[in-house]
Design a protein around this nucleic acid. Structure first.
Lengths: 235, 235
DNA sequence: CGCCAGCTTGAATCTACTCAAATCTTGTGG
DNA sequence: CCACAAGATTTGAGTAGATTCAAGCTGGCG
């Protein structure tokens, strides 16, 4: 079947969802149909605004987005990232207000999220996706609360690598990371200067290669063992 | 009606849930019936274990619990706290695995969570409760990532005060805080020594009084303004 | 070609940590 | 009801990790 090749933008998102739980044909068809109505947006667009009513939830088909919180004095904290296959703005009840802002980091493509009522497997995928999101929030809390700068960077990169691999967007060693060091700092609760120094150190140690937007981790398993990192498993 | 006085343990939990959304009689009756089957547990008991299958979700009727993550080398991070009226172990799909451990901090009383299918208002309350929990995780991330020690302490205390007030467990100035400074440190990503020093400073400044398990915040609104704190609102 | 965003470097400073010891509380058994 | 043990808080001195500020560099793009 060449259907995956026929809708390339959809492939990563559907792969990710079906990696969470097996999807039946109804679910797959619904996702494909929705993806066909996909909409592109430039980088730096607000997909969701903190304090505003949520509109319909969307599925991120392509590109990266960040969930951000802003303090009054301008300090900024990234709550987490949304990657292809992630769901943005899912909340489980009507008229919910968003607790964070979502901003596209790259050009993104999104589509309305097919209704969970269409298929039990779809509903299950959404529920698992939500639980995984929550687990990522917890991982972020542990990262910020108890890891030092070096550990935070490695831990986040390993998480992103793992998440991207669910959507077939990472190989064992490589993936694309469209973040500036400043964004990384905002995610890790550090300053850009310090992130820079730690990255250089990691490069000198041979733990990391980083050219433009491409990251290479020469020995992922070694790093995983050393960092005590473990994948998010909710089922 | 003396019914609230007749089941004192239930009052705070049901108050909190009905503060989220108006509950109809079916919902209230179901909650009361469940509370009658409430079960007491001592402090320091694991209510949920990270990596284990979730059993039935429970409603916390009385007492405090913490959601904890442990690192391999013994470092510990509190993800958040569960207070009366909070739901523990709610996940939205079958056979989920817990992403964190839940431990009772005080003696607690829990009961099985009434089925959401009994009443739409109950289902809505659960959905809102879950969204609020998520918002608390995000608040915790911002706290750890972008606030300094002094700000973290104040921010957390204001959050707890607000949450307890939903269950009628805090007055404007006072509430009971059954945490040691070490637990506070584990929640705030600090050391107990440093928490101690910051608390003393806050006491000297007259921002805080702290005797045993009782906290008094003489000027909550002043602190709220100064800290730029805002309540979690999801609806 | 020049601008701008992002990256890199250095020096000084500060926040929070570590380690160690003293003191204060609280709960328990005798 | 006291004595003791265990837990919790307090204090001090020295250190480490991260920040701040400032300046210089680099590469991509209009």
């Amino acid at each position: 079947m060449a259907s995956i090749l026929a809708v390339p933008a959809m492939a990563p998102a559907i792969r990710r969802l079906s990696a969470l739980t097996p999807l039946d044909d109804t679910a797959t068809a619904a996702l494909r149909a929705a993806a066909a109505r996909g909409l592109g947006q430039k980088a730096r667009r607000e997909l969701l605004t903190e304090g505003q009513r949520l509109s319909e939830p969307v599925l991120l088909l392509e590109g990266w987005a960040a969930r951000v919180r802003l303090l009054q004095d301008g300090r900024r904290q990234f709550i987490g990232f949304a990657l292809p296959g992630d769901i943005i703005g899912l909340c489980g009840f009507d008229n919910a207000i968003s607790a964070s802002t979502a901003v596209s980091i790259t050009r993104v493509e999104t589509c309305p999220l097919p209704d969970a009522g269409l298929s039990p497997s779809l509903a299950r995928a959404y529920a698992i996706s939500r639980a995984v999101d929550e687990a990522h929030l917890m991982a972020q809390i542990t990262r910020l609360g108890r890891l030092n700068a070096r550990e935070r960077i490695i831990d986040l990169l390993l998480e992103l690598r793992h998440r991207l691999s669910l959507a077939a967007l990472a190989t064992a060693e490589r993936f694309s990371l469209p973040l500036t060091q400043e964004m990384l700092a905002d995610a890790l609760g550090l300053t850009a200067v310090h992130v820079n120094r730690m990255l250089q150190q990691a490069r000198r140690n041979g733990e990391l290669e980083w050219t433009g937007h491409d990251v290479r981790i020469p020995d992922p398993n070694g790093l995983i063992r050393m960092a005590g990192w473990q994948p998010t498993v909710v089922t």
